[in-house]
């Protein structure tokens, strides 16, 4: 579905992506691993239309992806749930969720909300509460829920486990798996490599802006290189 071909990107004079090749097939969870500053988030931001490319091509369902601004990318079916959650603090939970379905038919809102409440029952209790007053875990759930409201055909999650308690991380990861089983492919960027690889089908390892390793998740979990670099130190 999504295919990055030799993508380059730069922040001013600093080149961050130096030719990323990456592909996501329907129904997959793909984990993107790497150290801080390797270019994981930039890869996602580039695909979402926030950062401009300086070279290469991004294909989406066989056609070049139009990326003039993030909302145009989203309307083609790719949704990024960025790092650090970014809930709208002074909107209520319900308004936060509804903001995700702007420009989609109103008639589908109720069904989508019900689905999200199945995933995250907490949100239903907090419906009229302001987004900024939620706890970290609830905010992450809200962020994922808000992304689901836009009916994505590809969901990109940036660090969903950042700063959360291990129990909640487990919950969120199992929900990610459920979302995937219902048919949405997921591109997952994680520091927490062990958890990510446990639910993913395939994985890419990115080092200083280049993909150095790609394999199925289980063989990545067992590969010595990955163990030493990402599992040994992080855990």
């Amino acid at each position: 579905m999504l295919k990055l071909e030799n993508v380059h990107a730069a922040y001013g004079p600093v080149e961050v992506l130096k030719g990323i090749n990456l592909e996501i097939n329907p129904g997959e969870i793909v984990a993107l691993l790497g150290a801080n500053g390797a270019g994981k988030s930039t890869t996602l931001l580039t695909s979402a239309g926030v950062v401009a490319t300086t070279g290469g091509q991004i294909w989406w369902e066989g056609k070049p992806l139009l990326r003039p601004s993030p909302d145009v990318v989203l309307r083609q079916g790719i949704c990024l749930c960025p790092e650090g959650r970014h809930i709208f603090p002074r909107l209520t939970v319900k308004e936060n969720l509804l903001s995700g379905s702007y420009l989609l038919p109103k008639s589908r809102d109720a069904a989508k909300l019900d689905r999200i409440f199945d995933f995250f029952p907490v949100l239903k209790e907090r419906l009229q509460q302001l987004g900024g007053t939620l706890s970290g875990g609830e905010q992450q759930m809200l962020a994922i829920g808000r992304s689901l409201m836009s009916e994505p055909r590809l969901l990109m999650l940036d660090e969903p486990s950042l700063g959360l308690a291990p129990q909640i991380v487990q919950r969120i990861f199992s929900i990610i798996q459920t979302i995937n089983k219902e048919g949405t492919p997921i591109l997952l960027v994680e520091q927490n490599a062990r958890e990510a690889l446990r639910i993913a089908h395939r994985g890419y390892v990115i080092v200083t802006g280049e993909i150095v390793l790609t394999d199925t998740a289980s063989s990545l979990l067992n590969s010595d290189e990955v163990r030493r670099a990402y599992l040994g130190e992080d855990e």
Partner: peptide, 25 residues
């Protein structure tokens, strides 16, 4: 209304509003 929600969302976090599909411009 939805426009109102979108307006408030844009006023609070412009980039994020764009990422959830609100045409900020």
């Amino acid at each position: 209304t939805r426009v109102g929600i979108a307006m408030r969302a844009v006023s609070q976090d412009r980039l994020m509003a764009s990422l959830v599909g609100i045409p900020v411009n």
